[in-house]
């Protein structure tokens, strides 16, 4: 049986301007899905994304290439990721005046 785990990496967190979801160690996993659930969404235009980042050590980060759409209304979005090494995090930037209150789930499977 494969191992699996869901991490709530952000819970009821406010995002304004630049944001970073807390890093998570994922070396044991081979696939992941980031879910962003917006409890509140104000002034978020369509087409704004969070970027998935990977890291060799949890300190130095680079864009992995996957984008997760930011919900323009209360709701949930996702992106699938594979072949990511030992660490994952999300970063992004909201335009002036926009804000999100989010739950971010990282769903992992070995």
């Amino acid at each position: 049986m494969r191992q699996s785990a869901t991490a709530t990496v952000e819970l009821n967190t406010e995002w304004r301007g630049k944001f970073t979801a807390e890093p998570f160690e994922v070396a044991w996993a081979s696939e992941a899905i980031y879910f962003i659930r917006a409890l509140e969404s104000e002034g978020v235009p369509g087409g704004v994304n969070a970027r998935v980042q990977i890291s060799p050590d949890g300190t130095h980060w680079c864009d992995e290439g996957t984008h997760v759409p930011l919900p323009a209304a209360p709701g949930i979005t996702y992106a699938r990721i594979t072949h990511f090494g030992g660490w994952l995090r999300l970063v992004g930037e909201l335009p002036n005046g926009a804000h999100l209150k989010v739950i971010v789930h990282l769903v992992l499977k070995s």
Binding site: N12, A27, G58, G86
Partner: peptide, 15 residues
Amino acid sequence: YRDIRPPMLSNLSMW
């Protein structure tokens, strides 16, 4: 309680 961080699995990889 609003920001108590969750556990994860680590293989302790250092830079």
